[in-house]
Computed example of a mutant assay.
Amino acid sequence: MRYLFPAILGICGIAVLVSLGTWQLRRLQWKEGMLADIDARIAAAPVAVPATPDPEADRYLPVEAEGELSGEGLRVLASIKQIGAVHRFITTLETYDGRVLLVDLGYRDMISADASFPQGAVKVTGNLHWPDETDGFTPAPDGELWFARDVPAMAEALGAEPLLIVAREVRPGSSITPLPVSSEGIPNDHLGYAVTWFGLALVWLGMTLFLMWRIKRRTA
């Protein structure tokens, strides 16, 4: 009888922790499927930019557009693994049918002395994206230097439609290196969470066994 309470406590705790770990494994399977779908969508054949794109339905949609780069735009402070701080270059493309579209051309590293924007006729291939990078702590823009990509605000500042083409190829090329959309930035930590929960279940089991051993020692 003296082992009943610690046994119930141990079984209940282990059951809860194992169920949490199992749930994270199910989430891992779901997230891997979602990432595979995103990767397939990103790599699909490009189409013309829709007349009225939807930020949810058309996210990551591969597109092509031709027109004239304005030679002006905004720089966004960003960071890239293995490279460090960079500037993203956001400009506008006036298409031959009269639309003005935002284009993320890519980046130059911070040591580059060239802060100019390309100008002239180009063909841009990339993906539509509406990145969610702003929060209450994001500083306000400092002139043409921004600290996050805010598509509606950038579109208003540059007189463009509220959509962003993140280029993966610009022909002809320039000194700006494309930084294409990918699924790498989407967090997928479910395996680590599952290992944590299962590890805690083992610790709980060890603590339960130790408690029962202590009870046995006291009553021996």
Rank of each mutant, 00 (worst) to 15 (best):
A140F: 01
G120E: 12
V181P: 07
T95A: 13
Y107M: 05
W130F: 06
V76F: 06
A65Q: 10
P53Q: 09
Y107D: 09
D58G: 03
Y107C: 06
L69I: 05
I11H: 03
L74C: 04
G10I: 01
W213R: 15
A121I: 07
A7T: 15
S182K: 09
D150I: 05
P6M: 04
G10P: 10
E94A: 15
T177P: 07
P55Y: 10
R88V: 01
A153H: 03
A65N: 11
A51P: 01
G136P: 04
N188W: 06
L93I: 10
S116F: 11
K31P: 04
L179Q: 13
L158M: 13
A201C: 06
Q29M: 07
M34V: 07
S79H: 14
A85I: 05
V49T: 03
T219Q: 14
S79V: 08
E68I: 09
E161N: 04
P178N: 11
L205P: 08
V76D: 11
A48G: 08
L69P: 04
G13M: 07
S174T: 12
E66L: 08
L20V: 02
L25G: 02
T52D: 13
L25Q: 05
T52Y: 10
S79I: 01
Y96R: 15
R88N: 12
L209Y: 02
G120S: 12
Q29V: 08
D132T: 12
V18S: 04
A36I: 02
L179E: 12
P187V: 04
L202D: 01
G159T: 02
F117T: 03
M212R: 12
A167E: 08
T138D: 02
L102G: 09
G199R: 01
G136T: 09
G192N: 14
R108Y: 00
G71D: 12
D97A: 12
I176D: 13
A43I: 00
I80M: 13
D39C: 02
D114Y: 06
V86D: 13
I42D: 05
T138K: 05
S183I: 02
S116T: 15
R218P: 08
K216N: 15
V49P: 01
E56C: 00
Q29N: 14
E56A: 09
D135Q: 05
A113L: 11
W130L: 08
V203D: 09
A45M: 11
K81P: 00
I38L: 12
I14C: 13
Y96V: 06
A44S: 14
A113P: 01
R41T: 12
G159V: 03
V122E: 10
A153R: 15
G21W: 09
D54V: 00
S183Q: 07
L164M: 13
A113T: 14
L28T: 02
K31M: 11
L163W: 00
E56V: 11
L105C: 02
F210Q: 09
R171A: 13
S183D: 11
V49D: 01
V86T: 11
A57Y: 04
P139L: 00
I176V: 14
M212F: 08
L9Q: 09
M154Y: 09
D97T: 15
V63G: 04
T219Y: 10
G159L: 00
A201I: 08
S70A: 15
G126R: 11
K216I: 00
A113I: 00
F147N: 05
D104V: 03
V122F: 08
I165W: 03
